[in-house]
Amino acid sequence: MNTQNNNRGAQDHGKGLTEPVAIRWLLTGLALLFVGLFLLVPLDAVFSQALEKGLGTYITAIREPDALSAIRLTLLTAAISVPLNLVFGVAAAWAIAKFRFPGKSVLITLIDLPFSVSPVVSGLIYVLIFGLQGWLGPWLDAHDIRIIFAVPGIVLATVFVTFPFVARELIPLMQAQGNDEEEAALVLGASGLQTFFRVTFPNIKWGLLYGVILCNARAMGEFGAVSVVSGHIRGVTNTIPLHVEILYNEYNYAAAFAVASLLALLALVTLAAKSIVEWRMKVSS
């Protein structure tokens, strides 16, 4: 049905089912101009600016000690936040999709909350609790535990901004799949965990992968929230995006874009993975 709707221009036999050719060209041209100005040129600019001073400068910028520690911190943050949010996403999706209970829409709205809160506010709320003047500040200081301006604060802020991704992906998917297969497994004597791993998981694995990919991309790229909690201590509490900011503000453009290109590559990989997963989901349904 869908293939009959799309690309009607070439198959139009009557008048009035699609726009006149001139309008079609105009709309396509305008849309492509929009895409060019806002998507294509910036995408190209990242890589050409990174390589402007040659491949040698590019590699030096990435192997510089502060850059390497930024990369390490980013990877560590993602390695902690993504699995945590994965477990949460699966648990929340199971509770919401497979059961009926009052207050479900409130729960779903709460899960969507980080999407509508500004990243700066997301970071601020953790400073208010764990910062030196915050709620737990004096207690933490007395026990010499540092959360804000240290790695744990960065992980917390990252967990906050990325936790909806897996849940949001799984909830509609599991709701659409319904309970029948799981109930059948139950009737046949499977335990809860068996049901999950052998019945539910194969059905949701592409959606789960997609959610994890998005979660990871956001975890590695988060800037605003991490900027507030990190303290910008070079070599210690700088993630890749923060390091890019420092280099850019020092007018070290080639190095800034070199490090930024790593994240741009990650973005392209994310987009490619998204396309593949969508194709697999369409194939398997």
Binding site: M220, G221, F223, P241, V244, L263
Partner: peptide, 10 residues
């Protein structure tokens, strides 16, 4: 998918 800082400087 693109981190906001990268988008910003670009």
């Amino acid at each position: 998918a693109l981190p906001t800082a990268v988008a910003g400087i670009t």
